[in-house]
Design a protein around this nucleic acid. Structure first.
Lengths: 218, 218
DNA sequence: CGTGTAGTTGATAGTGCTCAATTTTAGTGG
DNA sequence: CCACTAAAATTGAGCACTATCAACTACACG
């Protein structure tokens, strides 16, 4: 669908600024390879990452309507993105209502993932949040055809993970070790191996409904 | 805009189920009077409220595209809502692209509010979360023409507040008292009085940009 | 006037944070 | 291939914030 749109592609290294916070972009970006994250900085220098994006995700389509970026987008590991201009997007939505609906749908699924994340931050322990993240990522990557077997590449620093989970680096480190010891997951040097998805999902109280991976007519 | 659509209205008491979790509704609801909240239940009985809605909000428009509700909607205090059928919504989006864009916009602003809430849960203390909530609500209610002066009606139980902030009831109670003592806010018996919005916003590190209250052409 | 819900209190325990130091890993130039 | 360096990961100790438990009070309603 998006393949038909004119675009320019660009590659970023870890930490690279894909879209700047508070900017007013004239184009939206889609991840082609690698990962990107939505980041929010506070005045005291602390950071919260509110979403992690995988290939196929339209990261900042909402800015097409909101005009101003309420967050920045940074590369996690090396990351290749395609920028599509708002003009193209507008043309698509006007000429093809069906494709317009799919764009709307993608922002709406994005919202569902955010809601699940709110629940995660509000009501789960550190260990559960980590497990939940891995369950979600595994399914999203599998749906994107990227996860091989029960393992995937995830170049996420423990410090970035801490900002994603709303925890401190030290605590993340300790709980990650506990997860490894439990034998459910092995995550080391950018490679995640899920040893027992069922038990991991049980630990995380993970229910994949919100990911909307089931095929529905819309 | 919505006034032109055919609808049925209904009134709920505190805690009433406006839309059921996991259901597949055939209509979307808009708040006319009072408040409603998105609630997610866990297996262990704990609950997280992921959003609080004020009059004018289209609470579950996303289900028009997602088909399945990933959360429930409950009334906070007594609450009057209007249900609009998906057929009407579909007709509007097809006949008037501009109104369609406004509907899309409303789901996208909803997403921005959720992102801000993720940052709040991940990186702010109990007191700051409470202050942030009040700042946000005040501006939203003012924009909806409901907040009078520096005060508004908010029939939120401390237990509901705890589920919204991701805290325990006991802790909410103690921090609320601290807020009262500080003189920034007086919240008692369902009435919130903001004594010093500036200081409250400073405490919460509140930045209203994400609410998209500025008028932009879209 | 009894009953139930909401709000309040105090004590104790646990989860996660901060600080500071140390080890490991990855990348660079010689 | 090795030395050098910076970033990332790891460790331990002490502390702060928040949860849990168990009363107890205040208030609304029939």
């Amino acid at each position: 669908m998006i393949n038909s749109l004119p675009k320019r592609t660009e590659t970023f290294l870890n930490g690279g600024e894909v879209v700047a916070e508070d900017s007013r972009p004239g184009e939206s970006c889609m991840i082609l390879k690698g990962f990107a994250a939505r980041s929010h900085y506070s005045r005291d220098g602390s950071r919260q990452i509110s979403a992690l994006h995988v290939p196929g995700d339209f990261v900042d389509l909402h800015a097409y309507l909101l005009r101003v970026m309420d967050h920045g987008v940074i590369a996690i590991g090396s990351c290749e993105v395609a920028y599509v201009s708002y003009d193209s997007i507008r043309r698509v939505t006007e000429e093809s209502p069906h494709l317009g609906r799919l764009l709307w749908l993608s922002t709406v699924i994005d919202g569902a993932i955010q809601r699940a994340w709110v629940t995660c931050l509000g009501r789960r322990t550190a260990e559960q949040r980590m497990a939940h993240l891995l369950c979600e990522l595994y399914l999203r990557l599998e749906a994107a055809g990227i996860a091989t077997g029960n393992s995937f590449h995830l170049p996420l620093t423990q410090s970035q993970l801490a900002d994603l989970l709303g925890l401190s680096v030290v605590h993340v480190n300790k709980k990650l070790q506990k997860l490894r010891l439990s034998g459910l997951v092995d995550w080391r040097g950018g490679i995640v191996v899920i040893r027992d998805f069922g038990d991991l999902a049980r630990l995380a109280e993970f229910d994949p409904t919100y990911l909307s991976l089931r095929v529905e007519t819309r």
